[in-house]
Amino acid sequence: MTVDVISFLSILFILIGIFFMFVGSLGVIRLPDFYSRTHAASKTDTLGILLVVFGLILFEGATINSIKLAFILVFIALANPIGSHALARAALKSGLQPVLFRREQSLSKDDQSDAAERSANDLIREK
């Protein structure tokens, strides 16, 4: 295998992208509630997919297939945030409450706690 600069770069991009997708999968398992899991699925996965497809574009070079791959890139970057927004919105509308908690160290010196005492329950009931 001849290692020139372009294939080295594309291998690098694909490896970093696969790493980010792995972290996204891990986040879907590890994070405590639905809304924080949505963060993992929407952001880390999007970045991972974009990096892998960009690496493939670099490998493919300046052909018409690269522009087709760029369409996938644009579609993912547009559709993934919209999809996770729709899912999170459906969850809020049907009354799934987010798990909110404070870290212990910030509990004592919390200056804006009074303004923040509205519970997520009230927030949902308002709608």
């Binding site: 997708m21 999968s25 699925a41 996965d45 991972g48 997919i49 497809v53 993912i76 996770s84």
Partner: peptide, 9 residues
């Protein structure tokens, strides 16, 4: 959904 997006790649 997470499975579906990764399957694209």
């Amino acid at each position: 959904n997470a499975i579906a997006t990764k399957t694209i790649v």
